[in-house]
């Protein structure tokens, strides 16, 4: 039963990264789009993410609930020592969520739109940045439960090169995902060309940030090389991901859209697998050499059992509807039906 819970935790983090990440990425792209094309980008983006928008951030909530119900020690250690980046991430979530909604539901269209757009784009950058910083901090042995000064306990637990590099990498991945997803949402060849160019750019940004992550790890003596390349699974993961990137570009110029999305999703899945596989089940590595493990620092058996059942039953209810929702709004006839949000 414990493994059922762990699989759900992993899957909800992955899905948040894939769906929520594409949603962040859309804002990131907006941030880096010339003002001339911004309106078009925004429209494409809204058509793509509008209907599933509410559902996307549910994955984060599921992950948090799994953590505090199933693995309370892990949740509390993170909440105490990473209080500040968590708070900043929350502010990002608040700003983004409200700005996104306001700009589409404001009955009067005027200068307020600029403000919403600005807030949306900037917070789309900040939120995944801090998400990545939090993820990076958990494995970099910088959380020190015995720290005595404010700086050691609450600042240096997350503010150092490795987490920041992971944060930037997360931002790049989100941008990459969004631009690949959006290639398929474009209506004209010329728009398609624009999103292809963006995806290309984001692809290289991700590679650059990846190099940054490895450099920071090397500098801080974090055995990232060993985690990633120390075992056959890691090498296999990186290998298939690399091949799939090549395949993606092969298909991209030949007009296959759904394959592109699957490949991009596959790459992110491989990155997450490689990043978590080697030090599983230890998801928080502490400064004093101790670690918090999913197998040891768990709630009691009865709770885990109940949680596992709740998750399984929940997904039996949810998945068919979610898939139908995505399917319903996939079809290309979007323009014809009166989309109320656009009134």
């Amino acid at each position: 039963m414990l493994y059922v819970v762990i699989v759900f935790l992993w899957a909800s983090i992955l899905l948040y990264l894939l769906l929520g990440g594409a949603d962040f990425g859309a804002g990131i792209i907006e941030l880096f789009t010339s003002s001339k094309n911004r309106n078009q980008t925004r429209k494409t983006l809204y058509q793509a993410i509008g209907p599933i928008w509410e559902a996307n951030h549910m994955w984060l909530i599921i992950a948090i609930v799994i953590l505090f119900v199933g693995f309370p020690a892990i949740y509390t250690t993170m909440s105490v020592n990473l209080h500040i980046p968590l708070t900043i991430m929350l502010l990002g979530i608040i700003a983004r969520g409200t700005a996104f909604t306001f700009r589409h539901y404001d009955a009067v269209v005027d200068d307020m739109q600029h403000i919403y757009n600005r807030i949306f784009a900037v917070s789309s950058f900040i939120t995944p940045l801090f998400l990545g910083i939090i993820a990076g901090s958990t494995v970099s042995r910088s959380i020190d439960p015995e720290a005595h000064t404010f700086l050691d306990a609450y600042i240096f637990s997350w503010l150092h090169p490795f987490p920041v590099a992971v944060g930037l990498f997360t931002v790049a991945i989100c941008g990459y995902l969004a631009s690949v997803y959006l290639i398929g949402e474009t209506d004209t060849p010329e728009q398609r060309q624009r999103f292809l160019a963006k995806a290309w750019l984001m692809n290289w940004a991700a590679v650059g940030c990846g190099v940054l992550v490895f450099t920071a790890a090397y500098w801080e003596n974090i055995p990232l090389m060993h985690w990633v390349f120390g075992e056959i699974w890691g090498i296999l993961g990186v290998g298939t991901a690399t091949i799939s990137v090549l395949a993606l570009w092969f298909f991209a110029y030949r007009g296959y859209n759904n394959i592109l999305r699957i490949l991009a999703g596959f790459q992110v899945m491989m990155i997450l697998m490689v990043a978590t596989y080697q030090h599983f089940p230890n998801i928080v590595l502490l400064k004093n050499g101790a670690y918090l493990s999913l197998l040891e620092h768990k709630g009691n058996d009865k709770t885990i059992q109940a949680l596992a059942w709740a998750l399984v039953l929940g997904s039996v209810f949810i998945l068919p509807f979610l898939i139908y929702l995505m399917y319903s709004f996939q079809s290309k006839d979007k323009e014809e039906a009166p989309v109320y949000g656009d009134v």
């Binding site: 549910m58 909530i61 599921i62 609930v65 799994i66 505090f68 119900v69 199933g70 309370p72 949740y75 709630g299 009691n300 709770t303 109940a306 949680l307 709740a310 998750l311 039953l313 929940g314 209810f317 949810i318």
Partner: peptide
């Protein structure tokens, strides 16, 4: 968390 978490996990659904 582990004691009163049940409603929260169902609430997630």
């Amino acid at each position: 968390g582990p004691i009163f978490g049940m409603p929260f996990s169902l609430e997630g659904t």
